[in-house]
Computed example of a mutant assay.
Amino acid sequence: MRDRNPAFSEPLLPLFAPPGDTDEAEALPLPGRLPSYIADHRKRLRQRFMEGGASAMPDYELLELVLFRAIPRQDVKPLARLLLDTFGDFNRVISAPVPRLAAVKGVGDAVIQDLKILEAAAQRMARARVMQRPVLSSWDALLDYCHTAMAHRETEQFRILFLDRKNVLIADEEQARGTVDHVPVYPREVVKRALELNASALILVHNHPSGDPTPSDADISMTMQIRDAGDVLGIVLHDHLIIGKERELSFRASRYL
């Protein structure tokens, strides 16, 4: 997307410094104080954010705000646009794996750290909205949390949500990680952990990095095995959610359960 606003069409400064420069992102340090056009641009963005919030800003400007702290002496608009071009959108930038972020020219340790702090904060906030609350009355918040935690991962992850007799979420645990299209899950271990936590019900959650939440035959078979193992011990399998990039699939709503 081209920047059509003349207020943001300032000339670009050199983005990268010669090898050996120790400044963040190998940036060429600006001598003395920031040029006024960069300082004014940063001030305008901060003011617009405080007055209108994130909804008043496109992704690249919100990302600029995040980069200001990590790269204090440089025009960060080119790097913000490069990150978005590389990963697609704001969510995918902050949730991108560290090795892939590090491979983007201009991204240094400070940028990666700030992005990962932001990702962790988003997940922590989303999780706080569902923990120790009845799942049925906070279902939308639960889906938001699952998408925040898992939708943009590049490998499969399998989580279990453990519920008590009142369907209150008492624990959320990652059980396994896998490849881009497979994650190993052992029904016996799932039920064993439920007994350890004195859980009465379960919700299974895993992601499909392909973006398509349609269950595979292996997904369906594994789900039925966990359901049957739980039935023997009085542990109810409420649902199995598959999280895609833009939407999720519920086994219960889709009548697989």
Rank of each mutant, 00 (worst) to 15 (best):
R4E: 12
N5P: 02
E10D: 13
E10L: 15
L12H: 06
L12T: 08
P19K: 09
T22V: 12
T22Y: 05
T22G: 01
D23V: 05
P29N: 07
P29L: 14
L30K: 01
R33K: 12
P35Y: 09
D40M: 11
K43H: 07
L45P: 00
F49R: 08
E51H: 04
E51F: 04
E51L: 14
P58E: 08
E61A: 06
E61D: 04
L63V: 10
L63A: 07
L67P: 00
R69S: 06
R69W: 04
R73C: 03
D75S: 02
V76K: 07
V76N: 07
K77D: 08
P78G: 11
A80E: 10
D85S: 13
F87A: 09
N91F: 11
P99A: 14
A102M: 15
A102W: 10
A103Q: 09
A103M: 08
V104R: 11
G106N: 06
D109H: 09
A110T: 05
L118E: 06
E119K: 14
Q123T: 11
R124Q: 07
M125P: 00
R133N: 02
L136Q: 06
L136K: 06
A141S: 13
L142M: 11
L142T: 10
D144M: 11
D144G: 08
Y145L: 12
C146P: 00
R153C: 10
T155I: 15
Q157W: 14
Q157K: 12
Q157P: 00
R159M: 14
I160S: 04
F162H: 12
F162R: 08
D164C: 08
R165M: 12
K166I: 11
N167H: 13
N167C: 12
V168Q: 08
L169R: 05
A171V: 10
D172A: 15
E174G: 06
Q175L: 15
G178S: 09
G178L: 15
T179F: 15
H182D: 14
Y186P: 00
R188W: 04
E189S: 07
V191K: 00
V191A: 00
K192I: 01
R193S: 05
A194F: 03
A194S: 02
L197A: 05
N198E: 07
L204R: 02
P209E: 10
S210P: 03
G211I: 10
D217C: 01
D219V: 02
I220L: 13
R227V: 06
G230M: 10
G230L: 09
D231T: 11
L237H: 01
H238A: 08
H240N: 05
I242T: 04
E246I: 10
R247S: 11
